[in-house]
Amino acid sequence: MLSRRGFLLGALGAVGCSYTGPSGRVRIAAGEAGGFYVEFARLLAGEMNAVEPELRVEVVETLGSVMNISRIAAGEAELALVLADTLAAARSGTAPFTSPLELTALGRVYENYMQLVVRADGPIRTLSDLSGQHVSLGASGSGAALFGSRLVTSAAVSVVADHHPLAEATSALGSGRVQALLWSGGLPTPALADLDTAIGIRLLDLASYIPMLRTLYGPVYDQVTIPGGTYRDPNPITTIGVPNLLVPAPSLPTPTIRTTVQVLVDRATHLVPQQALGTQYLDARSLIDTVPAPLHPAAAATYRTLHG
């Protein structure tokens, strides 16, 4: 649990450097190996290092959005990738956070697709079919875990919730230790593509749960389509999308913010992982739409300078 006092104490610890972080580092709290958080963060770090080598931008692997905010709060990261629903919870002080955190954003960088995965050769066709079953609802500390809890609660489906990192979750589904796994990420996720090749997978349609989730938690959930052929299934699947935002530490200096935003705008085509199907986005129009957090003032000023 993160309190506002703990968050501010962590932020204050980084003040005083020409570039934030020990030894001039800018650390990006990303996500699990094999996911788009890490791939995007590595591409961003590479482009930022090329523009401003003295920043020494590094990628920190984590278990996801909640942990990333914890890293920002503890002064262990200067930038973090965070799902919009997790950011909204942090700003409002709702679980898993204990009081509001005054966070902003530098941009809306891409869409995460909630992928509820079951075996293709099994009987499970809907979320309701998972009642009483073991389900991996994302790794502890991930945005997927927060979303997964909200999903099954709002759907009134009682599952035995496990919380495995992606590699463990795919192994557990393959061996039958869980009957489903929830993953929040880009398309296609290589680990899921590998699992599909090994055992065959099916993605469950989640569209019918969007109205209730939006009623309960606000407009942080979108209806999105996973194109047919993303994995081996030729049929499109409708699911829930959650924007991914790039969040700065409150102490991040204005020059670093300007550099980051300029890279997001000018190097957008270099920031999409090669395996992406093109369903993600990274352009000036979507970058500035950072609901539920305001744009950092220095980021807003940089966008105005770049685009008038």
Score class of each variant (00 low, 15 high):
Leu2Ser: 14
Arg4Glu: 15
Arg5Ser: 15
Leu12Asn: 09
Gly13Asn: 10
Ala29Leu: 09
Ala30Glu: 13
Glu32Ala: 13
Gly35Asp: 15
Leu44Ile: 03
Glu47Lys: 14
Met48Glu: 10
Met48Thr: 10
Asn49Ser: 15
Val51Glu: 15
Pro53His: 13
Leu55Pro: 01
Val60Ile: 11
Leu63Cys: 06
Ile72Gly: 00
Glu76Ile: 06
Ala88Cys: 05
Ser92Gly: 05
Leu103Gly: 11
Gly107Glu: 05
Val109Leu: 11
Tyr110Gly: 03
Asn112Met: 14
Met114Pro: 02
Gln115Gly: 01
Val117Asp: 04
Val118Gln: 11
Val118Ser: 12
Ile124Arg: 00
Thr126Asn: 01
Val135Ile: 07
Gly138Lys: 00
Ser142Asn: 03
Gly143Tyr: 03
Leu146Gly: 01
Ala155Leu: 00
Val157Ile: 00
Ala161Asn: 01
Pro165Gly: 04
Gln179Cys: 02
Trp183Gln: 13
Thr189Glu: 02
Leu195Ser: 01
Thr197Lys: 13
Asp205Asn: 15
Tyr209Gly: 09
Met212Lys: 13
Arg214Cys: 07
Leu216Cys: 11
Leu216Ile: 00
Ile226Asp: 10
Pro227Trp: 13
Gly229Gln: 09
Thr230Ile: 09
Arg232Val: 03
Pro234Glu: 05
Ile240Trp: 05
Asn244Met: 14
Leu246Ser: 13
Thr254Lys: 13
Ile257Asp: 07
Ala268Pro: 08
His270Asn: 12
Pro273Cys: 05
Gln274Arg: 14
Ala276Arg: 06
Gln280Arg: 11
Leu282Tyr: 04
Ala284Tyr: 08
Ala299Trp: 05
Tyr303Gly: 00
